[in-house]
Simulated scan of single mutants.
Amino acid sequence: MSGVITKAIHILDILVPQGNEKEMSVTEISRELEMPVQSVHRILASLSQHGFVSQNTKNKKYKLGLSVMKYGFLMWDSLMLRSVAKPFMEELSRKTNETVYLATRENAEGVYIDSIDSPEILKISEPIGLRLPLFVGASNRVILAYLPQKTRDLLLANVNWQTIPSLKPMSRQYVEQELEIIREQGYAITSGEATVGTTGIGAPIFSYENTVIGSLNCAGPALRFTETNIEKYSQYTMKYANMLSKELGYRNRNRSRI
């Protein structure tokens, strides 16, 4: 299997454009890589099935497909988001003195892609790369709240609510009610769902395409998240999430209720 994957990577590499769009026939690829024609044809068929290469119907030659572009853009968006978000994360950290997270969506999960630790001795410090379902935790639920209705329905359709990684019992009805509240107030707040004794506040981040692409969050020990602090921190979190969205090109300030 590893040999086939290596050959597939070599084929993708050879199809990378050098200035102009590049197309090659099966024979040309076979000759260039010194691979049997049958092997090249078989691998190209699999790559084509998944959108990594496409075939020109006129000359039968192959070029890189849209899936390569999609994954490239996803990686670029993630790197760009981290870079642009850093000063806003730092400002939110200074204002709250709590741990600040940057999260994004990957399929049905939310993922932490960057963080700034609280200077306090007692603090929350979750690892970068931590993944949880989009309905667990403020950082994830606020992303779910602003996804299109059809996407939300699909993500919540077949959840086994008895086995979800949450410290609190949940149901679809509960999550739906929470999503409505989030859309009304503009931020999410959860306590003790993923980690005992913690509270998190999350606000959505939007792209230039007016779609939710992540969330800005502050989190810490629940004992420091008093009613007064929650009100203050939620305003800070929304403020810097909005500024970040604007920096990314988001202009639809009057979001419609989804």
Results as ranks from 00 to 15, higher is better:
Met75Arg: 09
Leu122Gly: 00
Ser54Gly: 08
Arg31Lys: 14
Asp114Glu: 12
Ser30Asn: 11
Phe52Gln: 02
Ala85Trp: 02
Lys63Tyr: 06
His41Glu: 13
Ile128Leu: 10
Ser39Asn: 03
Ser78Val: 01
Met35Trp: 05
Leu134Glu: 07
Met69Asp: 13
Glu34Tyr: 09
Glu98Trp: 05
Ser67Leu: 03
Leu92Trp: 09
Ala103Cys: 04
Leu33Asn: 03
Trp76Ser: 06
His50Cys: 04
Ile113Cys: 09
Asp114Cys: 03
Ser125Asp: 14
Leu102Thr: 03
Met35Cys: 04
Glu106Trp: 03
Ser48His: 09
Glu98Leu: 02
Ser83Lys: 13
Ile29Gln: 06
Glu126His: 09
Pro36Asp: 10
Thr27Pro: 00
Val68Phe: 08
Phe73Leu: 15
Glu98Tyr: 02
Lys123Gly: 02
Gly129Trp: 09
Ser48Leu: 06
Lys123Phe: 14
Gly51Val: 03
Pro87Met: 10
Leu66Asp: 12
Glu90Pro: 00
Met69Glu: 15
Thr27Val: 11
Ser46Val: 15
Lys123Met: 07
Thr104Asp: 02
Gln55Leu: 10
Ser30Arg: 02
Gly51Thr: 08
Tyr101Gly: 01
Gly110Glu: 02
His50Leu: 11
Val26Pro: 00
Gln49Cys: 01
Ser125Asn: 15
Leu132Arg: 11
Ile43Ser: 05
Glu34Thr: 12
Lys61Ser: 12
Leu92Ala: 04
Glu90Ala: 13
Phe52Pro: 00
Tyr101Val: 00
Ile128Gln: 06
Met75Ile: 03
Val100Asp: 06
Met89Arg: 02
Lys60Glu: 07
Gln38Lys: 13
Ser30Lys: 08
Lys95Leu: 15
Val26Glu: 14
Ile121Gly: 00
Glu91Trp: 01
Glu32Tyr: 07
His50Trp: 11
Glu106Asp: 13
Arg42Ala: 14
Gly129Arg: 07
Asp114Gly: 04
Leu74Asn: 10
Ile113Ala: 07
Lys58Phe: 14
Val26Asp: 09
Gly129Ala: 12
Thr57Arg: 15
Tyr71Ala: 06
Asn107Gly: 04
Thr57Val: 14
Met80Leu: 15
Ile124Tyr: 11
Ser93Asn: 15
Ile43Met: 09
Pro133Val: 05
Asn97Tyr: 11
Arg31Val: 12
Ala103Leu: 14
Thr57Glu: 15
His50Glu: 06
Arg42Met: 10
Ser78Asn: 11
Gly51Asn: 08
Asn56Trp: 10
Gly129Ser: 10
Leu132Tyr: 04
Lys58Val: 15
Leu79Phe: 08
Glu91Thr: 13
Leu132Asn: 11
Val37Gly: 01
Arg105Val: 08
Phe135Met: 12
Thr27Cys: 00
Asn107Pro: 00
Ala85His: 05
Arg31Asn: 10
Ser30Met: 08
Asn56Phe: 13
Gly137Phe: 03
Asn59His: 03
Asn56Ile: 10
Asn97Ala: 08
Leu102Ile: 07
His50Pro: 00
Tyr112Val: 05
Ile124Lys: 07
Ser125Ile: 02
Gly129Asn: 03
